[in-house]
Simulated assay, not measured.
Amino acid sequence: MLTLETFKIIIENTPLISIDFIIRDSESRVLLGKRVNKPAFDFLFTLGGRVYKDEKLENAKKRILKDEIGLNLEDYNPKFLGVFEHFYNDSFMDDNITTHYVNLAYEINVSHIQDLPKKQHNEYLWLSLDEIMNSSTVHKYVKDYFK
């Protein structure tokens, strides 16, 4: 595991690779969580996380889906939506360090989710596409997934 000082150097100098899950229910609503950490603090955002060094993407999807959402990858068939870039003027460590993510977006359909973790998001909402696109509390990078 990286020390915080090493990770700070990485954030300052390289892009991070992350995976986001666009989680839809039977009504095509999307699950978003209100972020408790920077970047994108206090915005509604999709659920996901970064890929670790030497971690295969399939293993990262499995870990992130379990850790961030409490779901088992084996129960779903994520649909790859594309590669997106996210640029932030801050980072979780320092307001003076920008963050650049190369984001791999996947979509899954679920019947129900319970006991969502509170480490990255403190509240969760199911929103329609219209609600997402017209909300000022949904981050612009989430809206990019639906353009």
Rank of each mutant, 00 (worst) to 15 (best):
R29N: 01
V51W: 05
Y88L: 02
M1G: 13
L129T: 04
K56A: 05
L125C: 01
F80V: 03
I113G: 06
G48Y: 10
V36E: 06
F146A: 00
N72L: 10
D20F: 10
K147G: 02
L47R: 09
K53C: 08
I69L: 15
E55V: 04
W126Y: 04
S128K: 09
I22D: 03
N134L: 14
F41Q: 07
E123Y: 06
Y76V: 03
G48I: 11
I11L: 00
F7S: 03
V83F: 14
I10K: 09
F87D: 03
G82W: 09
D75E: 15
R29D: 01
F80Y: 14
E27G: 00
Y124T: 05
V83D: 12
N96W: 00
G82H: 06
R50C: 14
T3P: 02
Y145K: 08
F21H: 02
V36C: 07
E123N: 07
F43S: 12
S91R: 06
N37F: 11
E85R: 07
N59L: 11
K56C: 02
E107Y: 05
Y76C: 03
H121D: 08
A60E: 08
Y141E: 09
V138P: 03
S18A: 14
E12C: 02
L116N: 09
K66E: 11
L31M: 05
D75Y: 13
K56I: 03
S26N: 06
W126V: 00
F21P: 03
S111D: 15
Y101G: 03
L81K: 07
A40S: 13
S136D: 15
N72Y: 13
L16V: 03
K66I: 05
S18Y: 08
L47Q: 11
I113S: 08
I108A: 11
E12P: 00
F43M: 09
F45I: 14
K8W: 02
K62S: 14
Y88A: 11
S135V: 02
L125M: 05
L73T: 10
D42T: 12
K34T: 07
I64R: 08
